[in-house]
Design a protein around this nucleic acid. Structure first.
Length: 263
DNA sequence: ACATTGACCTGAGAGC
DNA sequence: TGCTCTCAGGTCAATG
């Protein structure tokens, strides 16, 4: 699940449920999820402090421990967050549970254990160390910067859009949606695109990611002409009604409309 | 530079 | 019911 729009939802969820409350206890249910830190150290870092703000960069979420660095959350393929009602057992797949002094609890879930939980002194430095490019919705990103980072490469456009060191936040589903909206075949070589076309991809990427994030955050259905919910062989194109095709790019399966996204 | 593959992990769902 | 197989929205390292 977790790509940029999902992370936007997690951020919104944490902002409305877990800020400005003192953490009384941290329970680590499976310490393999921890990155370079023991459960004891995580407890020492967080206990007695509160999350003051959150920061999303690509597929990473940071929660600020005022004056004491940041909690780092990465969600892998199956990560999620959830409030745990009083008296309830944490849900299945809960790996770390933060209990606040007001009785509320926040659980980090990760079924497949491909995510990670850690702490860092500086979110900016952490992002750099992880070789993350600028966030795909970063306000300082514009057509020029996009064209600089993306343009000229020989690889397929879908692969480049999904490269977190080029732009952070886009995964398999978002890439399919952006390219569907841009009416571009996923295997199009970036080096074949002129500046005008790159600008079109950039504009489409921004608008599409904003819509996807808005729908996630506000629990709205996607617009009818979106393809993200059509991920089965034999699905119809929401624009032309033709059959979608499955195609592997970068050994990830995706869907596209051969009619609307000609090669 | 770019593409491909397997590994990390676990569980859901399909098919027998 | 239970077994086996395939697949899954992420990322990394190794290899061609």
């Amino acid at each position: 699940m977790p790509e940029l729009p999902d992370l936007a939802q997690f951020k919104s969820y944490i902002d409305s449920t877990a800020l400005h409350q003192v953490v009384e206890r941290v329970r680590v249910m499976d310490e393999r999820i921890l990155e370079n830190i023991t459960p004891q150290q995580l407890g020492q870092h967080v206990t007695g402090r509160s999350f003051e703000s959150t920061l999303r960069h690509g597929k990473y979420l940071f929660a600020e421990l005022a004056g004491h660095g940041w909690l780092v959350l990465h969600f892998g393929m199956t990560g999620n967050v959830a409030s745990v009602p009083a008296d309830d057992e944490p849900p299945r797949f809960a790996r770390v549970v933060f209990a606040f002094d007001n009785g509320k609890r926040l659980a980090y879930l990760c079924q497949r254990m491909l995510g990670k939980v850690g702490v860092t002194e500086s979110a900016d430095r952490y992002i750099e160390q992880q070789s993350q490019g600028p966030d795909a919705l970063d306000e300082t990103m514009d057509r020029d910067r996009f064209s600089e980072r993306v343009g000229g490469r020989r690889a397929a456009i879908k692969r480049v859009l999904m490269d977190q060191s080029v732009l952070a936040g886009i995964g398999n589903i978002c890439a399919d949606e952006i390219l569907f909206q841009a009416r571009m075949h996923p295997k199009t070589r970036v080096s074949e695109l002129d500046r005008e076309t790159l600008d079109h991809v950039f504009d489409t990427m921004r608008a599409t990611l904003r819509t996807l994030a808005d729908c996630r955050v506000h629990h709205k259905a996607l617009p009818e002409h979106f393809i993200s919910d059509c991920r089965d062989p034999g699905c119809e194109c929401p624009r032309c009604g033709g059959m979608l095709e499955r195609i592997a790019v970068n050994s990830r399966n995706g869907y596209y409309c051969p009619n609307c996204q000609p090669g």
